[in-house]
Write a protein that binds this DNA or RNA. Structure first.
Length: 152
DNA sequence: GCCAACGTTGGC
DNA sequence: GCCAACGTTGGC
């Protein structure tokens, strides 16, 4: 079992949107490192912290679960899609994604400031300066602590 | 809206 | 293959 964190701009696709949709293909990732985590690291059943960036406050708002194997990101083939990438070919897709299923929304978000303040969460990717990675691994220790903090 | 960080692009 | 220019992300 692995743990992850995905970022989404809060007013773009939020945990409330995921709740409404029940599940969604996590498309539009156009960063190789993030793609590698999804393609090579994520397994069905892995738990995923849902992080809102550009929000007030930015932080962890909910929980999702990986419910598919990695598959090609269809939006890369769609000329009309904002994430269209002419370099990604159907026979050799550049971009891969997984499907995420809604699990829950936390009563209170865990803000970035909270995360930075908590010495037990030291070393998390989101706290790294200049961090822009939209899919990132979370250690079991950090995940368990966050769940504990948020289930209160 | 600003700006630091950093990935990507493209000229050479 | 280097590296400057450019674009994007995301906190503040």
């Amino acid at each position: 079992m692995n743990y992850w964190l995905v970022k989404s701009e809060g007013d773009c696709y939020s945990i409330a949107d995921l709740k409404r949709d029940k599940r969604t293909a996590w498309t539009g990732i156009r960063n190789y490192q993030a793609r590698n985590f999804m393609r090579d690291g994520m397994k069905k059943g892995d738990l995923v912290l849902f992080y809102h960036s550009q929000s007030e406050p930015s932080g962890i708002y909910g929980l999702a679960k990986v419910v598919s194997e990695p598959h090609p990101d269809e939006t890369a083939f769609d000329k009309k899609d904002e994430h269209y990438d002419p370099k990604s070919k159907r026979e050799a897709p550049t971009w891969m994604c997984v499907d995420l299923q809604y699990v829950k929304t936390y009563k209170e978000p865990l803000s970035l400031a909270d995360i930075k303040r908590d010495t037990k969460l030291e070393g998390m990717w989101v706290t790294r300066k200049g961090d822009r990675l939209s899919v990132q691994p979370v250690s079991e220790k950090h995940f368990k602590w966050i769940e504990k903090l948020l289930s209160k």
